[in-house]
Amino acid sequence: MTSSTANRPSRLQGPGTVLVTGASRGLGRMLAELYAGEGWRVLACARQELPEAMASMLFYPLDVNDAASIETLGKMLKGTTIDIVINNAAVRGDTGGLASLRTDDFMEVMRINALAPLLIAQALRENLCLGRRKVLVNISSRAGSLAEGTLDDDDGDYAYRCSKAALNMATVKLAQDLRCENIAVLSLHPGWIRTDMGSPDAVVDIERSARGLKDLIDTTTMAETGSFRAYDGKAISW
């Protein structure tokens, strides 16, 4: 085996195991369904039971706003091989700008969007080490880019933007810390998608976004670890 081969996640010859947080609806559900449709074992994490249409997936209760719930998930999955972890669960929070900024709302958004993915990475690190793909994905947002986040919108979502900027830094740090274990870490922007969070006015179809994200996840190597890209493959400035 050459050193270049040893230093990148391998493409699976057959389906593996993927864990998705926030899997019961929206983008998380679409990603889970795409992987399940290709025969992957899907560990679908959500606060509530999955819809009947997702019965083929393995449900794990998870409240990413609760550190104890994340710790419990890690204990439940101890020794389980996981090839891909997708940190998808997130909330928008207040959008009223500085005037309506409130401490409790801000801190909740930060806990869910920025801290929880780090705690999940901590809890499932050993599981990823057992896998062949070894990919950790943080579903971020262009709204968290200091360079591009306010170029074409002026929404007053302070908490969401700050949380995604923090998540991007978490991606960079995780990529550094997990490189020695050949775990690739990505920040991915799904686009402004038509979901409950994105609103019906959004411009990107959810399936198009999910398929684009899945293609990036499935083809990533250690050369891309620590990168920030959109669902269509375009690089996003930090």
Rank of each mutant, 00 (worst) to 15 (best):
T5Y: 13
A6M: 10
A6V: 02
N7Q: 13
P9A: 12
R11I: 14
G14D: 12
G16T: 05
T17W: 08
T17V: 15
V18N: 04
V20N: 09
T21I: 08
A23I: 10
G26L: 01
G26P: 06
A32M: 08
W40Y: 14
A44F: 04
L50R: 12
L50A: 07
L50W: 08
P51N: 12
S56K: 14
P61A: 07
V64T: 11
V64S: 05
V64E: 06
T72H: 09
L73G: 04
G79C: 03
I82K: 06
I86F: 07
I86S: 07
D94T: 04
G96S: 09
S100T: 15
T103Q: 13
E108I: 02
M110H: 11
R111D: 13
R111I: 06
I112D: 03
N113L: 02
L115T: 15
L115A: 10
L119S: 08
A123P: 11
A123L: 03
N127Q: 12
R142L: 15
G144F: 02
S145D: 06
E148Q: 15
G156I: 08
D157V: 01
R161N: 05
A165T: 05
L167K: 01
T171N: 03
V172G: 00
K173W: 11
L178Y: 15
R179M: 08
S187R: 01
S187W: 01
L188A: 00
P190G: 09
W192Q: 01
W192H: 04
I193F: 01
R194M: 02
P200D: 13
D201M: 13
E207D: 13
E207I: 00
S209F: 05
A210D: 04
G212D: 06
I217T: 09
D218H: 08
T220M: 07
A223I: 01
A230W: 01
Y231L: 10
D232I: 11
I236A: 00
